[in-house]
Computed example of a mutant assay.
Amino acid sequence: MSRIMVIAGGTWQVPLIRKAKSMGFEVVNSNLYEDSIGFEYSDFGEVADVKDRETNLKIAKKYQIDGVVTDQSDIAVPTVAFVASQLHLPTIGEKKAELFTDKFKMREFCRTHDFPYPEYKLCQSVSEIADFLKEIGKIIIKPIDAQSSRGVHVIDNIEGIESLFEDARQYSKDGKSVIAERFIQGTEFTIDGIVTEKGHLSLAISQKDHFSYNESIASELFFSNKNPVYDYDLLRRTNNALIDAAKLPFGITHAEYKYENGKFYLIEMAARGGGTKIASDIVPLMSGVDNYAYLLTCVAGESYNDIIELDSSLINRCAVLKFMDIDSKGLPVKAINGVEKIKANPKVVDFGLEFGVGDIVGQADDDRSRVGYYIAYEESEEKLRKLMKEVEETLTIDF
Results as ranks from 00 to 15, higher is better:
Met1Gly: 07
Ser2Gln: 13
Ile4His: 03
Thr11Gln: 10
Thr11Phe: 05
Val14Thr: 01
Leu16Asp: 02
Leu16Thr: 11
Ala20Leu: 08
Lys21Asn: 02
Lys21Ala: 11
Lys21Tyr: 09
Gly24Lys: 10
Gly24Val: 14
Tyr33Asp: 15
Gly38Thr: 03
Phe39His: 08
Phe44Ile: 15
Ala48Leu: 10
Lys51Met: 15
Glu54Met: 08
Ala60Cys: 11
Lys62Cys: 10
Ile65Val: 15
Val69Arg: 02
Gln72Cys: 14
Val77Asp: 05
Val77Lys: 04
Ala81Arg: 11
Val83Trp: 13
Gln86Tyr: 08
Thr91Lys: 13
Lys95Met: 14
Lys96Tyr: 00
Leu99Lys: 01
Thr101Val: 10
Lys103Tyr: 07
Lys105Asn: 06
Cys110His: 06
His113Cys: 05
Phe115Asn: 07
Pro118Lys: 09
Val126Leu: 12
Glu135Tyr: 10
Gly137Val: 09
Ile141Ser: 08
Lys142Glu: 12
Asp145Glu: 07
Ala146Ser: 15
Ala146Leu: 14
Gly151Ile: 11
Gly151Cys: 10
Val152Tyr: 02
Ile155Asp: 03
Ile155Ser: 14
Ile155Asn: 10
Asp156Ala: 15
Asn157Met: 13
Ile161Met: 13
Ser163Ala: 14
Phe165Leu: 14
Glu166Ile: 03
Ala180Asp: 12
Gly186Trp: 07
Gly193Met: 09
Glu197His: 12
Gly199Cys: 07
Gly199Tyr: 04
Ala204Thr: 00
Ile217Met: 03
Ala218Gln: 12
Ala218Lys: 06
Asn225Gly: 09
Asn225Lys: 09
Val229Ala: 03
Asn239Glu: 12
Ala241Cys: 13
Pro249Thr: 01
Pro249Phe: 07
Gly251Asn: 00
Thr253Tyr: 05
Asn261Leu: 12
Gly262Tyr: 08
Phe264Ala: 05
Tyr265Asp: 03
Ile267Asp: 05
Ala271His: 08
Arg272Phe: 11
Gly275Gln: 00
Thr276Ile: 03
Lys277Thr: 08
Ala279Val: 09
Ser280Met: 09
Asp281Val: 06
Ile282Leu: 12
Ser287Met: 02
Asp290Asn: 09
Leu296Val: 10
Leu296Glu: 10
Asp311Ala: 07
Asn316Gly: 00
Arg317Cys: 05
Val320Gln: 02
Lys322Tyr: 14
Ile326Gly: 01
Ser328Gly: 07
Ser328Glu: 05
Leu331Trp: 00
Val333Ser: 06
Ala335Tyr: 07
Ile336Met: 09
Pro346Asn: 09
Val349Phe: 05
Val349Ile: 13
Val349Met: 13
Gly352Phe: 09
Val357Cys: 14
Asp359Cys: 15
Ala364Thr: 05
Tyr373Asn: 00
Ile375Met: 06
Arg385Lys: 10
Leu387Gln: 04
Leu387Lys: 03
Met388Cys: 14
Glu390Gly: 00
Leu395Val: 08
